[in-house]
């Protein structure tokens, strides 16, 4: 590793950083120019004082939390079960888990509306029903991330032997999951949860087509009608995503002491 840094490598790295950061910097500077001639945080003030922003932010954040909980409750036992009882199902599960990448969200949302908006379900008639539908949609969209995270976590420990050891000592399935498997997957689940949350916060199409006050839809609406606020919003949402990434980094590094394998 003592080798001198290749100048070309540095060149490409700098180029990539410029490609990434220059537009961001531009957006940021632009967002500060709401007041003619001076740089100010007026656009941010305008955004943060908008009741609609707060409402949609709260809505999406709530949905993010719900999505994370439902995803974990749904995926953790499923992935665990596959590891323990049906390892042959793993390739099938892998394919299912990437389907949301392959099927456009627009197709998903129309499918959901057509299926569940009609009798006998008619979920779209009430706002709660629609929320259920949208949460289900979010769970599907974020499934690849959550599945990967849990899968990687399980791979890093000897799930089967740990399960057998716990059973041998008298635990039932619930105790095995909550006392042994879950604590050892904490970091994996946490990082999955943060990606899930970030995905939901930025999601546009589901909120738009199901007509719910999601943050994505709000941002798109503002983008159509205003000039400086969308730039401010973009920076805020970037910040949020980066915060999530930072938290993932923090937790997966800081606690690595306890993320041990059973081997």
């Amino acid at each position: 590793m003592k080798k001198k840094n290749n100048p070309w490598a540095i060149f490409w790295a700098v180029l990539a950083m410029l490609y990434f950061f220059v537009p961001m910097l531009g957006t940021f500077i632009f967002s500060l120019r709401m007041k003619r001639g001076v740089l100010s945080f007026l656009a941010y003030q305008s955004v943060l004082s908008d009741a609609n922003f707060l409402r949609s932010f709260r809505y999406s954040a709530t949905m993010g939390v719900v999505t994370v909980i439902v995803s974990v409750v749904l995926l953790l036992p499923s992935v665990y079960w596959i590891y323990i009882k049906a390892p042959k199902m793993k390739p099938v599960m892998e394919i299912i888990s990437i389907l949301p990448f392959v099927i456009p969200v627009i197709v998903l949302v129309f499918g959901l509306i057509r299926t569940f908006g009609r009798p006998p379900f008619q979920l779209t008639l009430s706002s709660f029903g629609t929320d259920v539908l949208i949460a289900a949609g979010y769970v599907i969209i974020s499934m690849p991330y959550m599945y990967r995270a849990i899968d990687v976590g399980m791979r890093s420990m000897d799930v089967r032997t740990l399960t057998e050891a716990a059973q041998n000592l008298g635990s039932n399935w619930f105790q095995v999951l909550t006392l042994v498997i879950l604590p050892n997957l904490r970091i994996a689940i946490l990082s999955g949860a943060l990606i899930c949350f970030a995905t939901v916060m930025g999601e546009l199409i589901l909120g738009d087509f199901l007509v719910r006050p999601a943050l994505g839809s709000y941002m798109a609406g503002v983008g159509r009608s205003k000039a400086y606020e969308p730039a401010a919003l973009a920076i805020i949402s970037y910040g949020l995503t980066w915060l999530c990434l930072g938290l993932i980094q923090y937790f997966s590094r800081g606690r690595s002491q306890q993320q041990l394998t059973g081997r």
């Binding site: 032997t161 057998e164 716990a166 008298g170 635990s171 604590p183 050892n184």
Partner: peptide, 20 residues
Amino acid sequence: LPPNRRNMGMVFQSYALFPN
């Protein structure tokens, strides 16, 4: 009887200690 009701102590080749 399922394994958790047999009251047998088992030691595994890979130790299988709970890392947490």
